[in-house]
């Protein structure tokens, strides 16, 4: 099953490539004119157009691009005139790092809070949690980012307000926190429901009756059943983070593939835009495939 799904990825990726081409070549505006500036004469624009390879017939441009793609060459950025692959590699690193940190933190927070709420939920806990998680989902990310920046950088002077730090840099904490809040808020609801449902299940009652402690039951049986919502949230979230949260990248001045692609669209840097769309889509396909496999595994385990 997994093999078949993985075999499907190239087919879907080819579909993605076709869709992107269709979009790209219908973009209005002249990249050469944009690069040359308003004062450039028609000849200058023509020279720039030729240098960018935009004067060739469309089929030839597409053919050359595909040929390059087969050799792992994503073309040359029309903006910086550097190889797109190198630029994407450079901005993909920070995106992957951020995604990793966010997912680990979201799962830790979501599972802990969700389980505690299910186990010790008093009368006020439930509405408070509901309100909290609803709010975390509806506050625009930039608002969360702005508030965190003001509180932690400006008033408390604890963390750097921005920067492109790596895994062990303090600069990653605020952007990660910004993304963790909605993800964790979402996860809390499902973990809590899953845990509550399963505490009432027969097999859990049996286990409790057999004299197992509540804690071991929760950890052993109940959390396992919360696996599916965790996989669901993590996979959709990862897909989103890999697509680049351009907004978070902007507010925290972090390099990332989302902002890179957005800039490419603005400047009509077609090779860069095409390259980043392809890379993002490939990653999302990979994540989705792995998530499907994980569902199967989780279903089988909770069934068995």
């Amino acid at each position: 099953m997994l093999v078949r799904r993985i075999a499907m990825i190239p087919v879907l990726a080819a579909g993605v490539a076709v869709c992107c081409y269709l979009l790209m070549f219908s973009l209005p505006g002249d990249p050469a004119r944009l690069a040359a500036g308003p004062n450039a004469s028609e000849e200058t624009v023509a020279t720039v157009r030729a240098a960018l390879g935009l004067d060739r017939p469309l089929w030839q441009q597409v053919g050359d691009y595909l040929w390059g793609l087969l050799h792992g060459d994503l073309g040359i950025s029309t903006r910086s005139r550097q190889p797109v692959l190198g630029e994407i590699t450079a901005v993909l690193g920070p995106t992957l790092t951020l995604a990793l940190v966010v997912e680990v933190a979201a799962v830790l927070v979501g599972v802990t809070v969700g389980t505690l709420a299910a186990l010790h939920g008093g009368r006020w806990v439930s509405p408070a949690l509901l309100a909290g998680s609803a709010l975390s989902l509806c506050l625009p990310l930039f608002a969360i980012g702005l508030i965190l920046q003001l509180v932690f950088s400006l008033y408390l002077d604890l963390l750097p307000p921005s920067g492109g730090g790596g895994l062990f840099s303090t600069a990653i904490i605020l952007p990660a926190l910004t993304c963790v809040i909605p993800s964790a808020g979402f996860l809390v609801r499902f973990v809590r429901t899953a845990v509550e449902d399963h505490l009432a299940d027969d097999f859990v009652r049996t286990a409790l009756a057999k004299g197992l402690t509540r804690r071991s039951v929760v950890v052993g049986h109940v959390l396992r059943s919360a696996l599916t919502p965790i996989i669901a949230v993590v996979s959709t979230d990862l897909a989103r983070l890999l697509g680049g949260v351009a907004l978070v990248e902007v507010v925290f001045a972090r390099p990332g593939i989302g902002k890179y692609a957005f800039d490419a669209l603005e400047t009509r840097d077609l090779p860069a835009l095409l390259g980043s769309l392809l890379v993002i889509s490939l990653l999302v396909l990979l994540v989705n495939t792995l998530a499907d496999a994980a569902y199967d595994l989780a279903d089988r385990r909770s069934a068995g």
Binding site: V11, L12, C19, L277
Partner: peptide
């Protein structure tokens, strides 16, 4: 259904932005 999957793999914001750039 695979066509639908292809669309699901595309980053939604970027696709939406590109479409609006195309259509004005």
């Amino acid at each position: 259904i695979r066509v639908a999957d292809v669309f699901l793999a595309l980053p939604p914001l970027l696709v939406a932005l590109t479409i609006t750039a195309v259509l004005g």
